[in-house]
Simulated scan of single mutants.
Amino acid sequence: MSVEITNESSIPVGEIRLAAIADFMLGQLGIHPQAELSILIVDVPHMAALNERWMGEEGATDVLAFPMDELSPATRPGVAPADIADDEDEEPGIVGDIVLCPAVAISQAAAAGHTFEDELHMLTTHGILHLLGYDHMEPEEEREMFGLQGQLLKKWRAETERARG
């Protein structure tokens, strides 16, 4: 995967680790290994402007997702992500852009009782799922999206613990 991260905020976010989790999530979802994803890190005023312009909402939010190509995850029952990723007919594509606001993430992490890094990982995963067409407007959609998000984050944590030895 090609994951490009641009940090325009004054808050360090651990770009290498953020790129690693994005790459991991896209791989788990069966997205072509040469697909491209962009992550933009912005400050509160920039996020508020984007949120108002694109979502019609006032104030800054934690994550926005702007899909590009219509890519679909390989999360159908009985289909392993590797089976789809190796398909010669599938084009790599551009997944899209995720915009994160670390200032909002810091507040949310404190309120949720977990680390800033955990919050950024959750928001990155959440944004990727939105890029792939998942939503949470309806209760059933919310259960599906948040259930998958939880499973993916659990796999990421297990993989990270395994790598640390």
Rank of each mutant, 00 (worst) to 15 (best):
S10E: 14
I11M: 13
I11R: 07
I11H: 10
I11P: 11
I11N: 09
P12S: 13
P12G: 09
P12D: 14
P12V: 10
P12H: 05
V13L: 04
V13H: 03
V13M: 04
G14K: 04
G14A: 10
G14M: 07
G14Y: 07
G14D: 10
G14L: 09
G14Q: 08
E15S: 15
E15H: 11
I16W: 00
I16H: 09
I16Q: 13
I16R: 13
R17N: 10
R17M: 08
R17G: 07
R17D: 12
R17I: 02
R17W: 08
R17L: 11
L18G: 10
A19Q: 10
A19I: 00
A19W: 01
A20C: 08
A20I: 06
A20E: 14
A20R: 14
I21L: 07
I21A: 04
I21T: 09
I21E: 06
I21K: 00
A22W: 03
A22R: 06
A22Y: 05
D23K: 11
D23P: 06
D23L: 02
D23E: 14
F24Y: 11
F24A: 04
F24R: 02
M25A: 15
M25L: 15
M25P: 07
M25T: 15
L26F: 07
L26Y: 08
L26K: 01
L26G: 07
G27T: 12
G27R: 08
G27Y: 03
Q28S: 15
Q28C: 15
Q28E: 15
L29I: 13
L29K: 09
G30W: 00
G30D: 02
G30L: 06
I31Y: 00
I31E: 00
H32T: 02
H32K: 10
P33Q: 06
P33W: 00
P33T: 03
P33M: 00
P33C: 02
Q34T: 01
Q34S: 12
A35W: 01
A35C: 11
A35Q: 09
A35T: 09
A35F: 03
A35N: 09
E36S: 13
E36A: 13
L37S: 02
L37A: 04
S38E: 13
S38R: 15
S38Q: 14
S38V: 13
S38D: 12
S38G: 14
S38M: 12
I39Q: 03
I39R: 04
I39H: 02
L40M: 14
L40T: 15
L40F: 11
I41A: 06
I41E: 04
I41R: 06
I41K: 05
I41Y: 05
I41T: 08
V42H: 01
V42E: 04
V42Q: 04
D43M: 07
D43C: 10
V44G: 01
V44E: 12
V44A: 10
P45H: 04
H46C: 03
H46N: 02
M47C: 12
A48S: 15
A48L: 11
A48Y: 07
A49K: 13
A49L: 10
L50D: 01
L50T: 08
L50R: 11
L50V: 07
L50S: 05
L50K: 08
N51L: 03
